[in-house]
Structures are given as structure tokens and as C-alpha cells.
Amino acid sequence: MGKILLEVKNLSVTLGGTPVLSELSFSVEEGEILTILGPNGSGKTVLLKALLGLLPFTGEVNWHKKPRIGYLPQGLNQMSVRDMPLTVEDFFALKKLKRDQVLRYLPLVGLESGVLNKRAGYLSGGEFQRMLVAWVLASRPEVLFLDEPTTAIDVVGGETIYSLLKNIWREQNLTMFVVTHDLNIVYAHSTHVLCLSRFAHTCYGIPKEVLTPEVLNDMYATDVKFYTHPGTLSQ
């Protein structure tokens, strides 16, 4: 943990006349893993896009330094490239990376060099997602934005992705913003959590401290059965 990296003050986003986020304020330190938690429609992706400058907003989004950003958007799934003659090597070449540069990043996500000649659309869901993580990391980002990075894969594959990301986070001192609606991810992999609900009630802080049953019930507007994750996070 360290210096403040990002300060958000009174952030509001209105889409098509409907307010999606209103008067949101929080700050993020370097080295945090901030999970943005909330039910569908609570504005998690919208918040991520506003922070990235991809959507218009009111209020302040102040980056204390201009970091290199890596972004894994929610909509980027295998269907986007399914019927394209696009190998994994081609996909990396889209950001002007040479084969030897790419080869440095594949082992980080547990992929072997042989995957470079395979068509991206024909990889398994887990392999494709790991390739995307390597693709994002290859730009050597200081801040990672991950929007539901395990949506398209099964539970075990998803856990592998998060473990990989956490290893990389430890080794490279990244700051990460992760959007999810999976409570387990928050307890196991986050340093901080920001919760959003459709009723504009928000919470921000260390997961074990702020995610009380009352907050969760309020956020999901129903009785949520949960248990406190026994694992503690250490850097």
C-alpha cells in the first residue's frame, strides 16, 4: 500500500436520462485490489468506464499520476473473434508485439508457446481468458481494470485466473480494479471493496469490516446467506 493513486469526488453518471451513479466518492491507493461489488444493473461496469474516460460523467476523477492502464472489458469474449482467421500470435501483433516479447508473457498465465499458432476462437474458454490476461499485461500496465474476468469460464477456471492475477499483483505491484458480483472473490482476493446498489446505498472499505449482513441485504434487496472467508490477505 502506498500513496493515493486515484481520488473520485461526487461522481455521477446519467445514461439516456436515467441516473446510474450518483454522488460517488472514494479514493484508491497504489497497490490496492479494489473489488466493485453489486447486483446486475447497479452500475459496476458504468463506474469502470467512467474511471477510464469512456463515458461522460459529472464530478471529479483525479489520477494523481498518469498510469499505464490495462483493461479487460466485459464484452470481450470468444464470440468476438470466433469466426475470424486470427491466431493468438496475430492477436498480440494487433498491439505491435513481436513473438519474443509475447513469449515472455505466456508463461505468466500458464500458457505454452505452442498456443501462438492456434486460432484464438478455437481455444478453450479458460485458455482464451488467460490469453487475454497475458495480452493486457504485455503492455506492462501499472493499473489493471478487469470487468467480470471469469464470466465465460467455469468455477475452477475462474479460480485459476484470480490466483494468476493475484500472483502477478504481488510480483509487479499493480493496482487492480475488479468488477464482480461474486462475494467469494471479494473475501479471497481483494484488499478493498466498493459496493453499489440500485438504491444508491454504497459502502467502501476493507471487506471484512464493511460487508455486514445488513449491507449485503440492503445491496441485494434480499436475505443473503454468507460466511466470513477464513483466509486473510497478505502481500
Partner: peptide, 11 residues
């Protein structure tokens, strides 16, 4: 890249 995902291209 824009064809594949516009937001990704922007970032």
C-alpha cells in the same frame, strides 16, 4: 482491434 472491441481499442 476496433472491430473486435471498441473500448479495448480506446484504452
Amino acid at each position: 482491434l476496433i472491430n473486435i472491441q471498441e473500448d479495448l481499442a480506446k484504452t
